[in-house]
Simulated assay, not measured.
Amino acid sequence: MRRVGNSAIATVTVVALCSGAWLLHGGAGSHAPPQPSAAQAHADLSEEGAAAPALPPSPPDRIRIPSIRVNAPLMGLALTSSGSLDVPPAGEKNLAGWYEAGTTPGETGTAIVAGHVDNADGPAVFYDLGAVKKGSAIEVDRRDGSVALFTVDAVDVYEAKDFPDEKVYGAAKRPELRVITCGGGYSRSTGYQGNVVVFAHLTNSR
């Protein structure tokens, strides 16, 4: 299966996920989604932390982030006819997707999960992603019956023009996970100006 390039994923993350339909229809102001503080970010992604042994490949079915009350099914995201990464249907507010031509969550490498921050009706699955803290847990149910348990290393927000493709999507020597939604500034004409990214690595499984 052909793999999508880093720049194509970044473009889709910014454009297709980030229209801000709810804010555009009057949800702005105090209802804007939380953004991570500088204390939750890091300058360089380190692979020095303890990691659990990698799991064999298995598609994921569900993601849970207890600290922000996320418990959502996962759908596979493939490539569109234009060669970019597809996104979950905007109308399904409690649905996230994973890049199924890449690493499965729990195996060695960088697995990618993406979801909407909002839709025309209000907050969506990753609305509170910017409120996740370092050390928080992320659980991914896998089709083989195992659960991959990740620990958050950092949460950062990037403007679209400064999005670090290699840092977010680059290969890893241990099992890592990126969870991505929209964030940064908001413009009524173009939607969200960037992305919130959670960086996590595998620390256990069951």
Rank of each mutant, 00 (worst) to 15 (best):
H31F: 11
G29P: 07
S37Q: 14
A28E: 14
G26T: 09
H31S: 15
E48W: 09
G26F: 12
S30Y: 02
G49K: 03
A38I: 04
A43Y: 01
A41K: 03
A38L: 13
E47I: 01
E47G: 11
L23W: 04
L45W: 14
A50S: 07
L45R: 02
P33H: 06
H42F: 02
E47Q: 11
G27Y: 03
L23D: 04
P33Q: 10
A43C: 02
Q35Y: 01
E47D: 12
E47S: 11
S30G: 05
D44N: 09
Q35P: 05
A32N: 08
E47A: 11
E47H: 08
A38P: 08
H42R: 01
L23S: 07
G49E: 10
P33K: 07
H31Q: 15
S30R: 10
S30W: 02
A32Q: 10
A21Q: 14
W22H: 04
P36V: 02
H25Q: 15
A32P: 00
W22T: 00
S30P: 08
S46C: 06
H42M: 06
Q40G: 03
Q40Y: 03
S30I: 06
A39R: 11
A39E: 14
A21D: 15
L45Y: 13
S30H: 07
G49C: 02
G29E: 06
S46D: 10
S46T: 13
A39D: 15
G49I: 00
Q35N: 10
Q35S: 15
Q40S: 15
S46R: 08
H42P: 00
A39K: 10
A38D: 15
Q40A: 15
P36K: 05
H42W: 01
H25W: 10
A38G: 11
D44K: 02
P33A: 14
L23V: 13
L23P: 03
A28Q: 12
H31I: 00
G27K: 03
G27P: 06
A39M: 03
L23Q: 13
W22L: 02
W22Q: 00
A43S: 12
A43D: 12
S37F: 06
G26K: 10
A38S: 14
Q35F: 00
P36T: 02
Q35K: 08
G26Q: 12
E48R: 13
P33Y: 04
W22K: 00
E47P: 01
L24F: 07
G26D: 11
G26M: 13
L45H: 04
S30K: 09
L45S: 03
A50F: 04
E47Y: 10
H31K: 11
Q40E: 15
G26E: 12
L23T: 04
A28P: 00
L23G: 03
S37D: 15
Q40M: 12
W22V: 01
A39Q: 13
S46H: 07
L23Y: 06
H42I: 01
L24A: 14
A50E: 12
P36S: 08
P33E: 08
A32R: 12
A38V: 08
A39L: 08
W22A: 04
Q35V: 04
A32G: 05
P34K: 06
H31Y: 09
P36A: 07
A32K: 09
G26L: 14
E48S: 15
E47F: 11
A43N: 05
A43F: 04
A21W: 06
E48G: 07
G49V: 00
G49W: 01
A41V: 01
